[in-house]
Each structure stands twice: as C-alpha cells, then as structure tokens.
C-alpha cells in the first residue's frame, strides 16, 4: 500500500479512521455542549449571568464561547488519542449524530420550555 497515493489501492484505506472519528465525535460534543449551556442559561438566572461574557450580546456570548472551547478541547484530546488508530466508527457515529439531533431539539423553544 502506498500511503502517498491512496488512489493506487482502491478499497483499502490509506489512513486510519481515528482522526476522522475524533472530528466527528467532537463536533457532536460541541453542538450538544452549546445546547446544554443554552438550556441551563434559560433555566437558571445564576447560570445566565455567569454566561454573560460580553454584555451587548448577553448570555449568548458565554454559551457560544464556552461551547466552542469545549468542542476544540474535545477535538484536540480525541485527535491525540485516536489519530493513529482505527476505532469502531459505527457506534461513534450514532453517538455523535444523536448528540447533534438532541442539540436541535434542546434549542427548540417549545421543547426546551417544557423540560
């Protein structure tokens, strides 16, 4: 297998899936962190005030900045651990996509307001 010319070996992966898995799972974690923080800020006045990083934008500044930091931190850690490995991507895909789907639902006001 020639790693520099993956096209030369069709159907045989030239790169392990670990790096991709790290990016996928961390994207799910980042989206879910954002949704959880938004939900927490909506339910608790204390959390909301803590999340005001930039007053003109209000708690949204803290929600998004914290979520982005969690996403990048998770990505960095997972990339370091998995980049040279082959991982069970099927399960990770389900976890990442479930977190993404839950994020859409948790940020949807009619659902978040009922919880």
């Amino acid at each position: 297998m020639n790693a520099s010319h993956p096209a030369a070996s069709p159907n045989v992966p030239a790169i392990t899936n670990g790096s991709g898995a790290a990016a996928i799972l961390s994207a799910g974690i980042g989206a879910f962190a954002l949704a959880v923080l938004a939900f927490a800020g909506d339910k608790s006045a204390t959390v909301k005030s803590i999340l005001v990083f930039y007053k003109p934008t209000g708690a949204l500044s803290g929600v998004t900045t914290t979520a982005i930091l969690i996403w990048l931190l998770a990505w960095g850690i997972l990339e370091l651990r998995w980049r040279a490995k082959t991982v069970a991507l099927g399960t990770l895909n389900i976890v990442a996509l479930t977190m993404l789907a839950l994020s859409f639902l948790l940020t949807f006001p009619p659902i978040a307001d009922r919880l």
Binding site: P6, P10, N11, V12, P13, A14, N17, G20, A21, I24, L89, G90, N93, A96, L97
Partner: peptide
C-alpha cells in the same frame, strides 16, 4: 471512498 462510515457521518 474507502471509509464508508466516515463518509456517512460527513
């Protein structure tokens, strides 16, 4: 194209 599950997630 050699990573079916990666492709699906993308």
């Amino acid at each position: 194209s050699n990573h079916r599950q990666l492709r699906a997630a993308v």
